[in-house]
Design a protein around this nucleic acid. Structure first.
Lengths: 227, 227
DNA sequence: TCAAAAGTGTTAAGTTTACACCCATGA
DNA sequence: TCATGGGTGTAAACTTAACACTTTTGA
């Protein structure tokens, strides 16, 4: 039996990717959401998505879609999972694979974002989203929260140099709870790959705050993180 | 613009599910693997899989495939993720969604399993598997390990009544490390939903061991678990 | 009578939490 | 000079880890 026959009896499906794009700004986690000016569901809010093409893996489709919206390349992304309910997209059956990305909100291409009719939205004040996008967001958020506590992915949301107050505010936003400053700094001090620089940030306070950086080489050696 | 056009430009894909079926026997985690007597890759080892059909969600496809092999219904299953590399299946492009299942190895339909040419295999002595199935197994195993420590899914691998030695051996197999008996039993004693019964198992020892059971109602109330 | 698995508490080490004041600076 | 955010240590509470002997019973 030639190989083709084995597959040919089976149905084929549209496969899409949807991107949960996290940013961090003014003490809050934000998501990049589209106000759709196209069908289906014109005028409603949604995640940025796109159909997987013949010549790309699903991971690459997600990267392409992220780049289409933000102009950004080589960004941290992780798959959340496949969403395959039959009626999830009322237009046609589409199986969608959700990915989340962590980007530094200052890095993206603002015009590109605007041209897609996209807006940064506080994750705690999300509008109603189409289809099962809310479920994707919740799952991505939990996955990210989980991961951010044991791998240094959070640093993707910050500028290269950051103050400890910024770092703490970020983790408070991720965990959704406030932390003790001294205990937090104690943990940072025990984290070898968070390096103090000799630069000072004067924008956030009169006194100025020490800037730190994450050293990926050191992280790769130790692979230990808990915050 | 009619809705159809929006979708029609895009390619469609075969979508499959693959099942990582965990069982527990003689102190080891086992996987149910198929020695394929069909193309492609006849004669090689693989996970049980199947194509998603038009009239079923991906979750239901996974349940169907599990039932085809084991005869079992309403089994704990969880999605691991989508595998979408272009060349993962050398025959045709297939996007596959992996699911893992935890079953009590005594419950399944042995004849059905035999008729599929499937065998229980010690997870620490797996043969080479086709495609990216090894990667699926590793991911499923990690996900399961993670989850088994914070939700009482492990009990799905045991008979309804079990001894504490069985439970400890199970967790040692899941975590891949041995545990202190007294500390383990202390944790069990603090777990409200693990109930002592008044039955004794005499098959495992001369003295006999107390049988316990998991009470799902109590778990649903407290939702606390850590072992 | 003895081999084999079941059962049982205590202490030390390590981790986590709670908590309050001084410092440097620009406005 | 004072309002603002930056920076610092210690003790108590809790959690985890280490450890060894007695019990029961069938062969």
């Amino acid at each position: 039996m030639p190989k083709r026959n084995f597959y040919r009896e089976h149905p084929k499906f549209y496969v899409a990717v949807d991107c949960i794009i996290f940013g961090f700004s003014e003490g809050n986690l934000n998501l990049l959401l589209l106000k759709r000016n196209f069908e289906p569901s014109r005028g409603k809010w949604s995640l940025m998505g796109g159909f997987v093409q013949k010549d790309e893996s699903t991971d690459n489709a997600a990267k392409r879609v992220l780049k289409e919206l933000t102009g950004l390349d080589s960004v941290f992304m992780e798959q959340v999972g496949a969403f395959g309910e039959m009626e999830r997209d009322p237009g046609e059956r589409v199986i969608s694979i959700a990915y989340y990305a962590l980007i530094n909100i200052n890095d993206h291409d603002r015009e590109l974002v605007q041209s897609h009719n996209a807006l940064w939205t506080d994750i705690n004040k999300l509008p109603r989203l189409i289809f099962d996008h809310r479920e994707m967001v919740e799952k991505a958020r939990n996955r990210m929260k989980q991961k951010a506590g044991s791998e240094p992915i959070g640093f993707n949301l910050l500028p290269k140099l950051f103050t400890l107050t910024q770092l703490q505010t970020l983790y408070e936003a991720i965990y959704g709870e406030s932390m003790d400053k001294r205990n937090f700094r104690k943990r940072v001090a025990e984290t070898e790959f968070i390096e103090m620089t000799d630069e000072i940030d004067k924008t956030g306070s009169k006194r100025g705050a020490r800037l730190y950086r994450m050293n990926s080489d050191i992280y790769r050696q130790t692979k230990k993180f808990k915050i």
